[in-house]
Amino acid sequence: MGVKSTDILRAGFFGMIAWLKNNRWLLFSMIIWPYLTAFLLIALGMIYGSFETYKERLNIANPILYILAGSGIVMSSLFIIDTVATNALYHRWLGTLPYLMLTPTKMYKVLVLEPLPGALLSSTMGILAVLPGAVYFEGLLGAGKLLIVLLLVYMGMLPLIGLSIIVASITLVLREESNVAAFLTPLILLVSSVFYPIDVLPKVLQYMSRIFPTSYIVEATRMVATYSIPEFRALFIVAYALLALTLFYNGVASIALSGSEKMVKKSGVI
């Protein structure tokens, strides 16, 4: 008889609450980061150039709200990948990885479910943090649009978790001091073209963007920011793309993880 998924989720939830209770700065950081990145970009942009140029280049109605939402997406994606991908490495540093592996169930289930409450909370905070900004600029409509973005982030979380597990599998096999695949997060965000139109990127990166879930979230967010009423048909296409990526990444991830589990058990580096 294996452990139930809800038990692992409950343990993950408890761990997250205890961690937050003792590291209150983390909560603050989740709220402040989207504003900070937005501030940096806007301040730099305003000093170097003008908002009008930005509006024209990206063809969006409200650049401030768009940049805020974009920062929310950047932070949420970063939190998700970081929480799930770094989790295994973090447990190895702490020496708790063997105990996670001893949970009487599949390792894949443990590594996905244990950090899930943390990933959910941090990504929600990343988006909800910009809610006051959205309400300030566009009132209730702004809040509604942001909730659609949050929904998209949740949908995007599923393939991102699969991707993160692949990253975790790599870090478990390589014996380095930090997450050696950490560059994947900014790479994914770079090709997703959050703050600029995708055509400024070289063609090869444009093609690459199609395989990463954040590209679809950004695309949908841009639709939401461009049209006063989002075009639901287009949003459904995004949803299907994310579903396909979910199946693909989680399939690959389960194979990658079982491979790395074998290697780790063989070499004894846990």
Partner: peptide
């Protein structure tokens, strides 16, 4: 990669 994200974003403000 992080720097490029922000640099590209900031360049969009400049003609």
């Amino acid at each position: 990669l992080w720097l490029t994200i922000f640099v590209l974003g900031a360049l969009m403000f400049i003609p």
